[in-house]
């Protein structure tokens, strides 16, 4: 369970708050999509959850743990239970698919073992199992820079899942992918979400994708929460309010 109480984030040198006085509670089992224009605070919201961004005021509570105000060691313990995937995948270049997935276990292991790459058979088996789950077992020894965008994001997902997370965060994970691949990635996320009983929180630009997969939608505008509810209730009026323009259908689609 994630609780945010009156969270305000302001970036140095800016007048307007990136997030202002945001209060929300999200529960395990929910597949949450966060909508909003660029600069509405979606990224900031996601990054507050695992402490990549420190709020100016307010508190973030994840399960039993206080994210805000956590020291370095405590923060690492929180982060290792929170998987995160990114728009640009953020994989480690020159390493293989399997090696990238193994880095997902870094938070649980002593640094010296991580540095030397000493993994137990059980850990290697776990990485291979996750790779099978995302359908990349045959790519395991390929270097990640030789993969397609969709495959890279699946590596990103595998790296997050190998953490055995209770929460999965996605910061625009499909914004660099073509529509078909984006849909595939969402289907995979939904499948993993159900199998592992996660709280999944994902930023998206594509409202249709959000309505298709989310069990709950949050919409942000200028750092404020303007919608929190059932995807079915996110209608044309809400679209207009969120994006400041009317939802247009392609000609002949009326």
């Amino acid at each position: 369970m994630l609780k945010m109480n009156n969270v305000t984030v302001r970036y140095p040198g800016t007048e307007q708050a990136a997030l202002s006085d945001l209060t929300v509670t999200l529960n395990t089992g929910e597949f949450v999509c966060v909508l909003g224009k660029s600069g509405a605070g979606k990224s900031t919201f996601i990054r507050c959850i695992n402490g990549l961004q420190r709020p100016e005021s307010g508190e973030v509570i994840l399960g039993e743990r206080q994210v805000t105000g956590a020291g370095d060691e405590e923060l690492r313990k929180i982060r290792r239970e929170v998987g995160m995937i990114f728009q640009h995948f953020n994989l480690i270049p020159r390493l293989s698919v399997r090696q990238n997935v193994l880095t997902g276990m870094f938070g649980y292991r002593p640094s010296v073992k991580n540095l030397l790459g000493l993994f137990s058979d059980e850990e290697k088996e776990r990485a291979d199992r996750v790779l099978r789950n995302v359908g990349l077992e045959e790519m395991a020894s390929r270097r990640v820079e030789n993969l397609s965008g969709g495959q890279k994001q699946r590596v990103g997902i595998a790296r997050a899942l190998v953490q055995n997370p209770s929460v999965l965060l996605g910061d625009e994970p499909v914004a660099s992918l073509d529509p078909g691949t984006a849909d595939y990635v969402f289907r995979l996320l939904q499948e993993m979400h159900e199998r592992m009983d996660l709280l999944t929180i994902i930023n998206v630009h594509d409202v249709d994708l959000a309505k298709r997969y989310a069990t709950r939608i949050l919409a942000l505008k200028e750092g404020k929460l303007i919608f929190d509810g059932n995807p079915l209730d996110f209608d044309g009026g809400m679209f207009e309010e969120t994006y400041g323009s009317r939802q247009v259908s392609a000609p002949g689609m009326e």
Partner: peptide, 8 residues
């Protein structure tokens, strides 16, 4: 950032 996010 990704490495920080896994808790390294």
């Amino acid at each position: 950032e990704a490495m920080k996010a896994v808790g390294a």
